[in-house]
Computed example of a mutant assay.
Amino acid sequence: MPEGQRADARRNYARILTVAEREVAVHGAGASLEQIARTAGVGSATVRRHFPTRRALLEAVSRERVEALRVRAEELSGQGDSRTALLEWLDGVLSYSIAARGLAAALAYDGAPADPVHENSCSATMEEAAGPLLRRAVRDGAIAADVTVGDLITLIVGIVLATEHHPDPAARANRLFRMAVAGLSPPA
C-alpha cells in the first residue's frame, strides 16, 4: 500500500485489494474491474487511481504468494542436488500459479517497454529469487548454460495459461511441465 496516503485512501486501497483477491480467485486475471469497484463500494476511477493497470492489480493480489516463492528459493539455494532444488522451486511456482488464478498473468512478459513506475515487480522478484538456483544448476552442469530464469518463468506461464480451462488443470499442467523437463525423447 502506498505510503503517505490519507486514511480514507488507505482504507479504499485495502478494501479494493481484499475484493480483488476474491474476484481474481474466482474469475482469474480477467476479473471485472467494474465489479471489483462495485463490491468494494468505490468508483472505478478510484480502482484505477490505486491500480492504473490490470497488471498492477494482479501484482498486488499476487504479492504475498510471490514473496513466499522468494523465501522458498532462498531455502532451497544451498540444499541437495542443484537440479532437484531448481525443479522443486519451479514446481512450487507451477502449483501456486495453478491455484492462484491471476498469478500466471502477473508473471507474464508482455513485451511492453519497461515502465519504471509500473514495472513487472512479480517477474523481477521471481528472477532475483531463482537466479542463484539456476546459476548453481548451470555451474553443476545440470541445466544448459543458455537457459534463463525468464525462459523458465515463460514456460510455466505458458503451461498454466494453456491448461487453465482443462477439466483438471493441475494434472494437465503437471504433465506438460514434466514433459518439458524430461524432453520429448523416450526414456533411454
Rank of each mutant, 00 (worst) to 15 (best):
T39R: 07
A40V: 06
G41A: 11
G41E: 09
V42C: 01
V42P: 00
G43Y: 06
G43C: 08
S44R: 14
A45M: 10
A45V: 08
A45W: 04
T46C: 04
T46W: 04
V47E: 02
R48E: 00
R48L: 01
R49M: 11
R49E: 11
H50K: 02
H50L: 05
H50P: 00
F51W: 05
F51E: 03
P52V: 12
T53D: 01
T53I: 05
R54N: 11
R55I: 02
R55Y: 01
R55E: 06
A56E: 09
L57H: 11
L57Q: 06
L58P: 04
A60V: 03
A60P: 00
A60F: 02
V61S: 04
V61R: 14
V61Y: 08
V61G: 13
S62Q: 08
R63F: 05
R63S: 12
E64D: 13
E64Y: 05
R65W: 10
R65L: 06
R65K: 10
V66E: 06
V66K: 08
V66I: 14
A68C: 03
L69Y: 04
L69G: 02
R70L: 14
R70C: 11
V71A: 08
R72A: 15
R72P: 02
R72K: 14
A73I: 08
A73C: 07
E74K: 12
E74Q: 14
E75S: 07
E75G: 14
E75P: 05
E75W: 06
L76A: 03
G78F: 10
G78I: 05
Q79Y: 08
Q79F: 09
Q79R: 13
G80T: 02
G80Q: 02
D81F: 09
D81T: 09
S82V: 00
R83G: 11
R83D: 05
T84I: 12
A85C: 02
L86P: 13
L86F: 14
E88D: 12
E88C: 09
E88L: 15
E88R: 15
E88N: 05
W89C: 15
W89H: 15
L90P: 07
D91Q: 11
G92K: 08
G92Q: 06
V93D: 11
L94H: 10
L94Q: 09
Y96T: 07
S97K: 13
S97A: 13
A99D: 14
A99T: 12
A99E: 12
A99V: 07
